[in-house]
Design a protein around this nucleic acid. Structure first.
Lengths: 348, 348
DNA sequence: GTTGGTTGTCAAAGCGCTTTGGAATTTCGG
DNA sequence: CCGAAATTCCAAAGCGCTTTGACAACCAAC
């Protein structure tokens, strides 16, 4: 069943049927309903390829999937993708995913752009001075960045969360609770979010004249294993931190294992705040000691990004070019007053 | 630059240029080279949408990505996807990925099929009596299954590894080493591969008149955490197993943590064989005690599946409908002779 | 009763490619 | 040197949709 057949069946022209289907105003409501009913009955579906050819729109957005290990960890990526997908399905859009070595992100992105298969691009895992940005700007294809690129003029469309603010606030809370020795379990140090989160911590500490020693910062890809390992190292420091900031609940999972195995109590001996991407299988309230978190849903970000990107392609706009989402700081049981010094050392 | 302009530039007809580009034999070699050179110089790229419309081929294969947690674990999926992608890029194919709740796999698959965006389908994470199979068969669209569906007549195209054989062989090796008490750390019990692996173990044991008690089987999604947890339970059994079969190196990671923490020695007190999907960041030879494994590369399977699927679409065939890959059994240090009974209990 | 503005519809012209069915040219056996 | 076969190329017809420009038909207004 194609448009021609359908229009013959209805005794209408292809033009009218097409317009009825695409919501143009110049068609009689009665006619439109007749058309719609016929579509129902015949199961007519417009041919995508023909639509693409005629409109020049592919109805798809492209993204590069980092296919190597240790890359912000797959669970986060999958969760984000789910959000994107949810929204895309609603608009009958789809994505084209190009898996690529992180070494060849730029090349993969370029190939995707010129493939003619997509009409918008999405990029994530931004780094400082990200080399994809100049490419994207030169491409004359709509794009949207998840995150930002530290060190590049923010003159591109992005959606980001306020990573610096989140970790600044979290640090301030811990300072108010009397903590003075901090540790930071962070994502890979080349990634933008990790840079900003560290800055947030550092600047909150600086306000109290405190610093964050190198030994108390750990950058790693965000798996629970790494979290455990890094936390173990922190605990062996002569002046071990009592307050931990953690870039992901996944990292926190490992870190808490280390804390427990060292015979320490979370929320008493060690306070911990983790960033919560709202991963459905890792709820901070379900931890044996519920976690204090900074929260921002990764899936919601995916939905929003799909919305903006699809809107841009369909010229539904205008959308704000740049969005910076605030995070929530949610206090649960993993944070408490700093242990008194004598108590702290008396236990050893 | 489109075909018409290019052909005018060359003083040839569109037909000839098109044929030169698509490798048809009825064009003079000299002409073909002239065309190819012009393509280089002008940077001409055929319009995908027009090709799709004219040929009826979308140049893409569709797949449903399980977007919920606990689903065979993302690392395996990512690794497989990389293989698919590698090969797809080579043929200028791409995938369309539809994220979907595992509850709605069938619906998602159907939507993908009728979307008109793909000309072949790929499915994985097969279950016993998988409901997607009837749908696929009714769809008159090429498809390929990774794995099989226990309980369904194998009259569909698939690529699978010999899961049963792999675990049968592994079990036999452990039997030969004198082990009599076995444990199985397996994937989710509704998944086909898990069913077959269990069968492999059970039938090898049966040959010696042994059985695998329910308490010594653990089905779970394959994360290291689950592996650790399940192994801890095994170790608390009154007659704890000395030989462990493990469906993934990821599970093994956790299991070994449990073994070590119990003060036991891998390869002495406990022997373990894991299935190795050749995940690049989890090499069995790099474990502190190198792992004995059954090996089959997930990425290679991805490459092969893409090859077959693309070949089918392009009618490059014929390909074998069904492939069953043998696994390799590679002995390293995690397997050893069964501990003597007195030794075993004397240590406690 | 003519003019002018809506409204609802249509025929036809693309969009950029592939492919069919010839037609022109060359090659070659007899 | 001729007719048939092989080689090389082309014009034109789609593929199924969107969109332009025009045209009836209808209404209100002067």
């Amino acid at each position: 069943m194609n448009l021609k057949q359908l229009s013959e069946l209805l005794g209408l022209s292809q033009t009218t049927v097409s317009r009825a289907l695409n919501g143009y105003p110049e068609v009689n409501e009665a006619t439109r309903e007749r058309v719609l009913r016929a579509v129902q009955e015949t199961g007519y579906r417009p041919n995508k390829a023909a639509q693409r050819l005629a409109t020049g729109k592919a109805g798809s957005i492209g993204l590069v999937m980092p296919s190597a290990p240790g890359h912000y960890s797959d669970v986060h990526f999958g969760e984000f993708l789910t959000g994107l997908g949810e929204e895309a399905v609603r608009h009958d859009f789809h994505f084209v995913i190009m898996p690529a070595d992180p070494d060849d992100e730029v090349g993969a992105l370029r190939r995707l752009a010129i493939s003619g298969n997509v009409d918008a691009l999405f990029v994530a895992y931004m780094r400082g001075h990200d080399p994809r940005l100049p490419l994207l700007k030169s491409l004359s294809m709509p794009f949207l960045v998840h995150g930002r690129s530290f060190g590049t003029e923010p003159d591109y469309p992005y959606l980001d969360i306020d990573n610096e603010g989140a970790f600044y606030d979290a640090t301030r809370l811990l300072l108010q609770l009397g903590h003075t020795r901090f540790g930071l379990l962070n994502g890979p140090d080349h990634l933008d979010f990790a840079i900003r989160r560290r800055n947030g911590v550092v600047s909150a500490l600086a306000e109290r004249g405190l610093t964050l020693p190198e030994a108390c910062i750990s950058h790693m890809s965000m798996t629970d294993e790494h979290g455990q390992f890094a936390m173990e190292r922190f605990l062996q420091l002569p002046e071990r931190p009592t307050a931990i900031l953690c870039s992901s609940t996944v990292l926190a999972l490992g870190a808490i294992r280390a804390v427990t195995q060292a015979g320490l109590k979370l929320g008493e001996d060690i306070s911990l705040i983790a960033h919560d991407d709202v991963l459905p299988h890792l709820k901070p309230e379900n931890f044996s000691v519920p976690l204090t978190t900074t929260r921002s849903s990764l899936r919601a970000a995916g939905v929003r990004i799909a919305q903006r990107l699809i809107g841009t392609v369909k010229q539904d706009g205008p959308f704000p070019e740049q969005e910076l989402w605030k995070t929530e700081l949610i206090v649960r049981a993993s944070t408490g007053a700093a242990p008194r010094e004598d108590q702290n050392f008396g236990g050893v």
